[in-house]
Design a protein around this nucleic acid. Structure first.
Lengths: 335, 335
DNA sequence: CAGTAACATGTGATCGGTAACTTGCCTAGG
DNA sequence: CCTAGGCAAGTTACCGATCACATGTTACTG
C-alpha cells in the first residue's frame, strides 16, 4: 500500500481507505489511486488486513462424508450466498467412519483448523448425532450455525423439515387409498432419516395403520433400497415411503426384477427430488427439498450472527410434494 | 505466543518452533509448552503466521456452475487430499451464464479474490473454453492446475480421458454388432462433451460407419436426453452413445414413453457411472470415470507445484467400461 | 585441551495492512 | 467574527506470528 500511495502521491492509510470504503477519499485522489493500482497490478493482502482488523471474512464449512446430491446442493447454495455477501468459504471434510470414536476427534480437528485460520463463523452442513457436542468449543469463539434437523441448541440453526416430508409423503399415499404402507429408512445415524421415519410413523398412527420399517440402512444409496426390496414380502404392502429418492430407485430396480412395477403393482414416494427422479421408470412422486435454498439461508444466517453477535431464531424450510407417476390407487386385492 | 511462552517460561520464538516443527525444542520444554497451550486454550493464528512466512497453506478451488455428480465428486477428492496434506481449500463458484461476456469477468473476479487471500495455488475444476485465458494473470503469481480436457498449457494439468470414453463406449456398441449408432452430445461449451463426441466420431469413422449426433444440449441434464429422444427417428438407429449417464436416463425415459425399451429395442451406453446408473431400468452400461481420483491427483499436483515451483507433466485418468444390462446385440430388423 | 558440530534458546526486525488519533481546510450557523 | 462540524488526509502504534542472526551449552574429535 505504501508503494501505491507513493505512486499516487498519498499515504498508505488513504489507499487503505480507498479499498475498505470507510472514511473519506477525495474524488481526484480516488482516481490517482485507481491509476496507481492498475499500473502496479496491486492487490491488497487479506491475510495482513485481517490481522489487525480482527475478522477475516472467512466462513468455515464442515461437511461430512462425500458430497452427494443433498450436501452438494447445499454447498452450492452456500457458495452462491457467500459470493453475494463477499464472504469466503473454507471447507473441511470429515470422513464418516463407523467407529464412533475416530470421527469425533476428526470434528474437533476440523474445528481447530477453522478457529486457527481464523474464521469468522462456522456452518456445519449435514449434521450427525454428536457433532453438536464436539462443536461447543467453537461456539465460545465464533458463531456456529448448525444445519440440522434436531440441533441441541435451537437458536441459530437452519433445517429442512424432514418430519413433514415423512408425514406428508406418507399421508399422500394414505390419501390415495393405501393402507399397507411400508417405510424404507435412511441411515439411523442421520437426523434427517430419523425425522422422516418419525413423520411416517405419525401419519400411520393417526390413521390407525400399522407401521412397518423394512431393512437396515448404512447409507442413503440405492443399494440400501435394493436390499430392502429383496427381503420384503410383496403381498404385505401396496404403498412405499422411501427416505430418499436414491433408496426409492434401488427399490424400484429390485422390484422390477421380481416382476413388479409401480404404479400398477405398488405405489412409492421418495424424498429430495433429485434431478434424475423425474426420469425414473416411472417418474417418481417425491417430497421436494430445496437444498440450495437451505444453503443460502444458512449462509445468510451465519452472516447475520457474525454482524450482530446475536443468534437468530431457528429457520426451517418446508418440503413440497411433487406429484409424478409412481403413485396410483391400490388395486383391490380381494378380487 | 508470548503469553504461552511466559506461562511455560520460554520465549515466543520457542513456542513458534514448537508448533512449526522447524528448529530444536528440548524435551522438557516441549512438555511445559504443551501444558501451557492446553491451559490457555491457545491456537496459533495462521493469518498472522502466513503474513511473515509468505505462504498460507490455502489452495483456491474454482468451480463452475452448480455442483453436479462429477464436480461434486471431484471436490470430494480434492478435499480428501487437502486434509491429508494439511492444506486448506478455499472455494469460489462462478455462475455459468450464457452471455459470453459476463462470466469471463466473473472468473477474473474470482481469481482476484484468490490472489488477494492470498492462496498458494489455484485449481480450476471443470474447465470451459476460455477460462484458460482468464487465468493467465494468476499464473504469474501462483501455480495453477487446470482440470481440463484440452488445456491451453499442457504442463501442470490433469484430466479424465473423455476422448477414450467416447471412443471405447462407441467401440463397445460396434463390437456388439451395432452399425447405426447415434450420439447424444453434452453441452458444446464443455470440453468433456467435445472430446466425447470426438471419440465417438473417431470410432465410427474407423469402422466406416456414419456418425449422427442428435439434439442440442445446453447442459448435462436428463431433460437434454429426453428432448433428443423425442425428435429422433426410432428406425434409424440401434445403438446410442450418450455423453453422460444423466442424458442417457432422460433418453431411456422418453423412449419408454414411445414404447421402446433397452436392451431389446435399442442399446445404450453412458459416461460417468453415477451411483444411480446401476439401478436404472435397465442398469446402465457406462464408461466409469473416477472423479474422486481425479480430484485427489489434482490436489497432489498443485501441491507439488507449490513445493517445487515446477510444473509437472500432464496427468490423465483413464475411463473404464462398466458392463451392465443396457446393451445387447441388435435385433435383425430385416426379418 | 582446544576446536567444532549439534543442540537449545533468545533478540530484534519485519510481513502488509488497519485502528485510533491528530491535523488542516472549508463551510455554515449563531 | 468565532466556532462547530463535515471533509480529506497523515502519523504512529499495533495485530500475531516468522525470519535471520546471535548466544550459550553440551558432546565429540583429534
Amino acid at each position: 500500500m505504501a508503494d501505491v500511495g507513493r505512486a499516487a502521491g498519498v499515504s498508505a492509510q488513504t489507499v487503505s481507505r480507498y479499498f475498505s470504503g470507510v472514511g473519506y477519499v477525495g474524488g481526484s485522489t480516488r482516481e490517482r489511486i485507481a491509476a496507481a493500482v492498475a499500473e502496479l497490478g496491486y492487490r491488497p493482502n487479506r491475510a495482513a488486513g485481517s490481522l489487525r482488523a480482527r475478522h477475516t471474512g472467512i466462513i468455515g464449512v464442515l461437511t461430512v462424508g462425500e458430497l452427494v446430491h443433498g450436501s452438494a446442493q447445499i454447498l452450492t447454495g452456500l457458495s452462491q450466498a457467500a459470493r453475494r455477501l463477499e464472504q469466503t468459504l473454507m471447507i473441511a471434510q470429515v470422513e464418516l467412519g463407523y467407529e464412533a470414536e475416530g470421527w469425533q476427534g476428526e470434528v474437533r480437528r476440523a474445528v481447530d483448523h477453522f478457529l486457527s485460520a481464523p474464521v469468522d463463523g462456522i456452518v456445519v452442513s449435514t449434521s450427525i448425532s454428536g457433532v453438536d457436542e464436539a462443536l461447543d468449543a467453537a461456539r465460545a469463539h465464533v458463531p456456529v450455525v448448525n444445519l440440522s434437523e434436531r440441533p441441541r441448541v435451537l437458536d441459530g440453526s437452519v433445517g429442512t423439515h424432514s418430519f413433514t416430508a415423512g408425514y406428508e409423503g406418507t399421508g399422500y399415499l394414505i390419501g390415495q387409498g393405501h393402507t399397507a404402507v411400508i417405510h424404507l429408512a435412511g441411515p439411523a445415524t442421520r437426523h434427517e432419516a430419523i425425522e422422516r421415519e418419525r413423520g411416517y410413523r405419525e401419519a400411520m398412527r393417526e390413521f390407525g395403520l400399522e407401521a412397518l420399517v423394512v431393512g437396515e440402512a448404512r447409507d442413503w444409496s440405492s443399494a440400501t433400497g435394493f436390499a430392502a426390496a429383496q427381503q420384503v414380502d410383496v403381498d404385505r404392502f401396496t404403498g412405499v415411503f422411501a427416505s430418499n429418492d436414491e433408496i426409492a430407485l434401488g427399490f424400484l430396480s429390485a422390484m422390477e426384477r421380481r416382476g413388479r412395477k409401480a404404479p400398477t403393482d405398488f405405489s412409492i414416494v421418495g424424498v429430495d427430488d433429485m434431478p434424475a427422479a423425474a426420469y425414473f421408470s416411472p417418474p417418481l412422486t417425491t417430497m421436494r427439498l430445496d437444498f440450495q435454498g437451505v444453503g443460502r439461508t444458512t449462509l445468510q444466517t451465519v452472516y447475520e450472527m457474525i454482524r450482530t453477535g446475536e443468534s437468530t431464531a431457528r429457520r426451517v424450510i418446508e418440503p413440497e410434494l411433487r406429484i409424478r407417476e409412481s403413485v396410483a390407487a391400490p388395486r383391490d386385492r380381494t378380487r
